[in-house]
């Protein structure tokens, strides 16, 4: 975030340099005579500086204080919310900046009644153009590096278990496609926690959760808080998508190509599981619930349902 105050200074400098007092014809040439960066500050330069400061502080304030997201209930969600705050802050500053520039130019440079003639014959300015190529490039680079870091922390860069030496039950020919959060499992394994394996089957228009350890088949997903979950998902018919907004995670469930999704819930509660890929007429009704419970409650649910292949819902 270091480059932003610096950017604002430059913007305000160029703003003041570009400012041409309207209505006073004689001042055109005076302003034009100076170099872009050596214009003596006028009252309107101060005005522009104030506006730039207002945009910057206002944008950052909105970015940091306006919460648009639902509850964060997984390890991923906390990381995601950090990224969201940064993107939201940068985006708000840029958006407010452009809006203010457009509105200001429409107000300042509108043709007043009785005014004739053209504007200034400025066809370009190399310094300015390099400036506004470089600034977005730097911001983009920063955003890219930061989101790469976030992606890595979410486990997106972990190699997919494709070589048959993983703990999921699958045949050797199967190729796992995509998925996020797979490295959480290995980091959790280092702390002595084992991931709960769950097989997810999606079909028109329901999710089924199969716990291979207890031979449970359930329509609701029950998981204990604080323990990583490793899901292997496959669809029976068309493409569906498994989405829990509170976990900030989504993964398509594809027929013929199993995908994996790992997450670690951090808060107890009942959260919606939503199908996010158009799957037919009842797509909007294809919902389920993930129940995140205290470990002992989860254990009692597990014991109660184990080895009975009847859906509890």
């Amino acid at each position: 975030m270091q480059e932003i105050p610096c950017t604002a200074r430059l913007i305000s400098k160029y703003l003041s340099a570009l400012t041409i007092p309207t209505g006073c014809k004689g001042l055109f040439s005076i302003t034009l005579k100076g170099q872009w960066s050596f214009v003596v500050p006028t009252s309107s330069a101060i005005f522009n500086l104030l506006i730039a400061l207002f945009v910057l502080i206002g944008g950052l304030w909105i970015g940091q204080n306006v919460n648009l997201l639902p509850l964060d209930a997984s390890v991923n969600a906390t990381v995601y919310d950090q990224l969201f705050k940064v993107l939201f802050s940068i985006g708000t500053v840029l958006f407010l900046g452009i809006v203010v520039l457009v509105v200001l130019s429409l107000i300042k440079f509108r043709r007043k009644p009785g005014q004739t003639g053209d504007g200034l014959p400025i066809e370009g300015n190399l310094t300015l153009e390099i400036f506004w190529t470089a600034v977005p490039a730097i911001v983009i680079l920063f955003v890219g590096l930061y989101s790469y870091d976030i992606y890595d922390r979410m486990g997106g860069m972990a190699t997919l278990p494709n070589n048959g030496h993983e703990h999921l039950s699958m045949s050797k020919e199967e190729r796992i496609w995509g998925g996020i959060g797979s490295s959480e499992v290995s980091s959790a394994a280092n702390k002595g926690l084992t991931a709960i394996p769950i097989n997810v089957t999606a079909m028109q228009f329901a999710f089924l959760f199969h716990y291979p350890e207890g031979e449970i088949i359930s329509g609701e997903l029950h998981v204990p808080v604080g323990q990583p979950v490793n899901m292997r998902m496959e669809s029976k018919d068309v493409i569906h998508a498994f989405w829990v907004p509170e976990f900030r995670l989504k993964q398509d469930v594809i027929p013929g190509q199993p995908t994996i999704l790992s997450f670690t819930p951090t808060k107890t509660g009942r959260f919606p599981i939503i199908c996010a890929e158009l799957c037919g007429p009842y797509h909007g009704g294809m919902r389920s619930t993930v129940v995140v419970e205290e470990p002992e409650n989860y254990q009692s649910w597990f014991q109660k349902n184990a080895k009975t292949p009847i859906s509890e819902t």
């Binding site: 570009l18 457009v102 043709r111 005014q115 053209d118 504007g119």
Partner: peptide
């Protein structure tokens, strides 16, 4: 940015 710079300093008919 170039469009905004085109507006800036013009005689804009609104």
């Amino acid at each position: 940015f170039n469009w905004v710079a085109t507006l800036w300093g013009g005689r804009i008919s609104l």
